[in-house]
Simulated assay, not measured.
Amino acid sequence: MSAVQEQGEIFSVQKQGAYLQFTVVAPRIAAGFQPGHFVAVAVGGENTAMILRRAFALAGATPTGQFAGTIQFVVAEHGPGTRWLVQRRPGDVLDLVGPLGTPFPLPSGPSPAVLVGGGYGTAPLIPLAQALIAQGSPVEFVLGAATASRLSGEMTAKRLAGRVTVTTDDGSAGQKGLVTDALPEAIERINAEIVYACGPMAMLKAVGQVAQKKAIRAQVAVEESMACGIGVCMTCVLPVRGEDGRSRFVRSCVEGPVFEAGRVRWDDVGKLPADLVGADAMGGH
């Protein structure tokens, strides 16, 4: 299903530690949702100078049944755009475009999986866990953040999965340390065949390295700034190795945000590698 633009009324706003989870009535977006999709939200109101939308991973959608036609996404206040958004209240209307991006690829059959979330990066992993569990895959979560208030979705993850390991940089919740400290044990505990992750870029790089050492796949949803969300502005490009072995800039919002971790050239993010396809042409501009 193609992305649509929809005027969605805010149904509820719930506090989640340092974040807010929005539930918005958007039946056409909800109808096409798959785990890993995101939504682009216009911010600032009709007369604002903030013309660029803000992208948020979808934490779920209910196209049928109770609360039919709603979508959920988690917002962290970072700047003027998100500051305006967190001031919205139930009954207010948001201008939304979605569902956008490429969803998480699901295994063809039951496949033990570890889901790794950093901060509000847990949001898209919740519906992913539901989809994996529905097809018979054992699921375990490893959730991390800088401090306890920056964790997200811990209670929901515990209701879904048999085990949730929490880490915080300062030790204010769970065990002190990084998600990658707990990840190898989690992989071994359920004999995981795949790791899924969403969070800061440095975390995704480290998760990919752990998965590589364990000789299993890792699918990661990147948190790049996505100004347009539809592949036009080229602000969210990443250097990624293709199946032909050659590297190209690809758009996180269209070809992603989900990528195979081993294909992303993490050390070259934000750079123009000389061996990139087309680098010779781009270098002079």
Rank of each mutant, 00 (worst) to 15 (best):
I29E: 03
E140R: 14
H78V: 12
A30H: 03
Q135E: 10
G231W: 04
V240R: 11
D275H: 14
G118H: 09
S252M: 00
G199T: 06
A221K: 07
A26K: 08
V269Q: 13
Q135T: 09
Q16S: 15
S12T: 04
R159M: 14
S225W: 12
L20S: 08
A173R: 14
L160H: 00
Y196H: 10
V139F: 06
Q7T: 04
L20K: 09
A148V: 01
A40L: 05
A211W: 08
A49G: 12
P105S: 02
A192T: 05
K176L: 02
Y120G: 04
I216V: 06
P273T: 05
R53T: 15
K15N: 07
E46M: 06
A145E: 06
G32T: 04
G153T: 10
A61E: 02
T180L: 04
L143Q: 14
Q175Y: 10
M282S: 11
I126E: 07
Q175F: 02
L183A: 02
R265H: 15
P27I: 10
T180F: 11
A40G: 11
A134L: 03
Q34E: 14
L132R: 07
R83C: 10
E185G: 15
W266L: 09
Q16A: 15
V237N: 13
G44A: 07
G177D: 00
V258Y: 09
Y19H: 13
S247R: 09
S149T: 14
V97D: 08
T62K: 14
I230W: 03
V93C: 11
V139T: 08
P124H: 08
T165G: 04
V277T: 08
Q212C: 03
S111W: 02
P112W: 08
I10W: 06
S252C: 12
G136P: 08
P127D: 06
A113L: 01
I194P: 01
A161W: 06
C233E: 04
A131Y: 03
C228M: 01
A42L: 00
V240D: 03
D169W: 00
G8E: 03
I187L: 11
G242P: 05
L52Q: 12
P110G: 04
G229D: 04
K271C: 03
R89L: 04
I216N: 12
D275C: 12
Q87A: 09
G98C: 00
G256H: 04
R248Y: 09
K214Y: 03
F73S: 07
L58P: 11
G199Q: 09
I133F: 01
T64V: 14
A157D: 12
R54E: 10
P105G: 05
